[in-house]
Every structure is written in C-alpha cells, then in structure tokens.
Design a protein around this nucleic acid. Sequence first.
DNA 1: CCCCCCCC
Length: 619
Amino acid sequence: MLTGGAIQDILSKPVEQHPEKPVFQILGIKKIQTKGSEGAGNDRYRLVLSDGVNIHTSAMLATQLNDLVISKQIEVKAVIRLDKYICNIIQETRKVLIVLEMTVIKPGNEVPGRIGEPKNINADSNSDRQQPQQNGSGGQNSMSGGGTMSGGPVLGGASRGAGLASATYGSHQPLASKGDSARAVYPIMSLTPYQNRWTIRARVTSKSNIRTWSNSKGEGRVFNVDLVDESGEIRATGFNDAVDKFYELLEVNKVFYVSKCSLRTANKQYSTIKNDYEMYLNNDSIIEVCEDRCNLPTLQYNFVQIGDLGNFNADSLVDILGLVISCDDVTQITTKTTNRQVSKRDITLLDRSEKSVRATLWGDDAEKFDEHVGKNPVLALKGVKVSEFGGRSLSILNSTNMRVNPTEVKEAHNLVGWYENVGKNSTIESLSGNRSEGGAMGADYKTLSQITNEQLGMGPKGDYTTVKATVVFMKKENCLYKACPSADCNKKVIEEGDGYRCEKCDKSYTDFKYRLLLQTNLADFTGNQWVTFFQETAENILNTTAERLGQLKDSGDDTAFDQLFLEASFKQHIFRIRAKMETYNDETRLKCTCVNVAALDFKKECRRLLGEIKKLKML
DNA sequence: CCCCCCCC
C-alpha cells in the first residue's frame, strides 16, 4: 500500500528521480506554534510521514491545505498520496518535504495502526536536536517535543546544487551579490525572520497604490505587493526609497526572484495573506524578473460562504466569491470626520449558500463599476471587510484585491453556471436586511454590561447595539403624557382653560392625544440598564396602545391599568438600543433609548448563539 | 514607518 523507499529516494536523489505520487502513512501531525498568531488560518502543520520503511519527520503541509487538518480530513494513521510536493534543502543535509497537493487514500479511523516497521531516517545528521522517534504503536501522535521546526531558527543557508532548488529551478542563475555563495530558491512558507540567506521565486498577485501618510511620527510613502509561490504567500511592503526602486518593477502577475528583505511579524488585522510574517523591502533587497516560464499559482483565496458571514466579527477581513445580482447607482456621501465628499455604490452579492450580502464600493471603485452595471459579473474579493450594519454587509477597501470575472478562479465559472440553473430561481435570503428595514435590528449584539464597559455613546451620534434582555420594571407613574394632537407633532401640551396649547405648533387645540414615555429597566445575565421607550416601542412591550392606557387611566380602572404592566413584565425581547452620553446640569451620564423591539425568534436566536459559540471556538 | 476606507 505504501511506496516503500520513497522517503530515501526523495531525500537522497535529484529531483528528476523523485517518485511520482508516493503513498505515505501519517504518523504524526503537529501544529507549529507561531508567535503572535491570532485566530485561525495562520498555523502551519508539520507531518511525520512513513513509507513503511522509513520515517521522515520534517514534512510540512502547504498552508493552503491547512483546512484538511482542521476539518479532520487528515488524521494520524491516515494513508495519503502526495500528488504534488517539493523537497527543499535545509542546513546542508536536512530536508523539508512540503506537501502541496494530496489525496486521502484511507482515512485515519479506517487504518488499525502503523503500517510496517518504519525506522526513523535521520536526515538531520548534523544536529542532535532531532530526537529519535519514540512512536508507540497504534499511531499516536509521534511528534517529539522541541522538534527543530517549532518556530525557532529552522533554516540555515542552503547550498547550491542540491535538492529541489537547483534541480527544479536549474536554469536560474543565483542572484547573490559578488563574493556571496550562491543560494537556492526557498519556498515562501519556509521564510522566518531568523535567517535571511534566502531567495524566493514568486508571482506578484496584487499591488497597492502608492499611499502617502503624514502623522505625528512623520510622513512618507508606502506600497505593498502580495507574493505567492507553490508553498504559500507573503505580503511585501516598501517605504519611500523602496517605492522609487521597486514599485514600477513589481508588475502584477509577473514572477520575480526576491532576496535580502527583512521579515517581521505580520499584523493579521490588515490582510488575509496566510503568513505569520511580512516582508520589508529595504536598501539591500534584490528583486529581479524571472523570465523563465514557470507554473506558479495565481492569487490564493480562502473563500468564505456568504451564509457564514454571521460567524465573523465586524472589521474582520474575508475572501468572498460572489455574483453581482444588483447594483445601485453611485451616490455621494460626506464623511463625518473630515467632511470630504466620497462616492459610494452598493452592490448585492450572491453565492451558493443562497444568501446575499450588500457590499459597498468606494471612490474610484464605485465610479468605475459603471461598466458592469446591468450584467451579472462574478467578483473574487480577497481581504474584504465585514461590517455589522443592518445584519452583515461588506466594505470593499482599497486594499481589497477585487477581480471581476476572474478566469483563473474555476469556482467563478461554476458559480455562473449555478446561478443560471439554480440561483436565479432560488429564494435568496439577505444578510444585510432590505433597504426599508436597513439596520432596524442589527446583528451587533452586546450584553447590557458591555454597553457601559465598552463605553458606548461617546460619539456625537451615539452608538447603536442590539440586546436580548428581559423587562424587569416599568415606571408606570407619569408614563402617559398629553401630546399635541396634530399628526407629526408629539410635543407635550399645556392645559389652559378648556383647551390644550402646543408651544411647538404655537397653536391651541380643543383635544389632545395620549403618548407614552416609559422608563424601563432591562436585565440580562450581565446586569441591567434603564432604557427610555417612546410611543411605538412602549406600545410594543406593553402589548397595548397609548390610547387604551389613557382610557383606563381616565376611567379610573387602576386594576386593568396595572394588569397590563404586570403582564408585560418579565418578558424577553430583542431590543435595538441607542446609547448616547448626555449632559444635564454639568452631569454627564449615559442615556439609552429603545428604537426597535422584536419578538424573540427562537430559531433565529439559536442560530445566532451557535454562531457565537463557533466564534469562541475560533479564538 | 502604513493600517484611513468614510454614509445610512
């Protein structure tokens, strides 16, 4: 079943003699601890592979295959076929095998135990850090602790003419400067800040504009490019001089040899590039066009289904493949802080989850989208921002890589076919709410204690949030007031003689209408909060009308009046709350107003809670 | 060293 001897061949023979699609058994899977990695998607997995004769402990899974581990498609004991792999020389004699594509031949749970009696092949003969394998039978995770791949300085200088590098990329003349020893091409995923004697060969998949900034720390220009090879991807950033030196050279889709850049921990907040590190172009950096034809991948996506967007927090970045089902016109908005005029255009995206989401294009992107209006293009978006307005929506940032009808993304073609045959006629549920309800009940749920703990309401417009809470007390005294009877005026009237005067309308009326202004105490498992309910929201929780309450009050039927309050107490609802700091008599305090009440929909609520649990799991 | 991405 296993390709006996394949490990020996891969480690000792030139690449032409490497076995094609060897079959191995996985004897261990270990997540490599990486510093400062937040959330999922940045991990790397090291595999212990056996060919039944030998064990190789330095195999790595290409980052784009991480999901196979996460979804447990590959587990210890599984038999797998390597459809595509590279073997890179490390520290003269130690070699890392990188699995680029693979097929599960037999899942781990169907394999009783270790196949054959494989011996550890110590490729790392120069190092005593590699522990001999102490594999128990039955295929337990056999990773020896403190292995050489666990985040330390794993890569030494590579020598020329060995392993994958020179064989695969044989026509490449080493790029090292004079006097430096020649070097081999490294896979992107092997780069670390701990050693810098590497050259990568990578395709530019996207390039930003040159941005300028000016702040207290200074000013300057900056750009970035995303680079990809068979093993993974990395973002490279260049400042000032590097902009002049490299911006023009680095054309999208072209392939380059890149060396002598520094690496630093990447801030995951700003990119969906699957790499813990980011590359910085500096004065020593060398970038040369690779003229050879090579088969490097294009952009790497990690698409998220639109239907799963509820599992992502606001401001997270995701990759989305969606078909445009509607386009709004371009409108102008004025920004709150800088009063600048900015163009925006909302479009609606649909995918196979049969859920749609509204996405906003800004500035030039909004204007230039005119050419696609009336068509149904497919957009491949890498690094689009999740926003919580009115459920979930997307914001297409300057840094978002947007491809329209990308021919290189085969799912894009499939999505068109699906839309023509299925999607077109499906009932589509929107995650963004429709325009009329637009954000009436947002998906940005908070607990009552979060309202104060997170200091909501500091801004001039206040903050909106949704809470699930219980009505625990209502101040029924003075909850009704006599208001101006005219249609749009709800001002309290002053009784004068037999009439009612409205100061706002500057008019006297013979009649008035009762309106509600109800101080209500809401509670959830974290605390409670006084919230003001006006007419419609108060009528909703009291399950009656202001008019009816007025009648009971006027007729002196206190029992019936009180009964309505009693029945409305200890009922749970979903509340949309506006929180805003307000100052009265030099005292600033948080004022909360309920702007919408919705019944607790158990099905929806369960789905939301499941989503919350899923979010916790992803931490 | 950027990392702002706006509005309802």
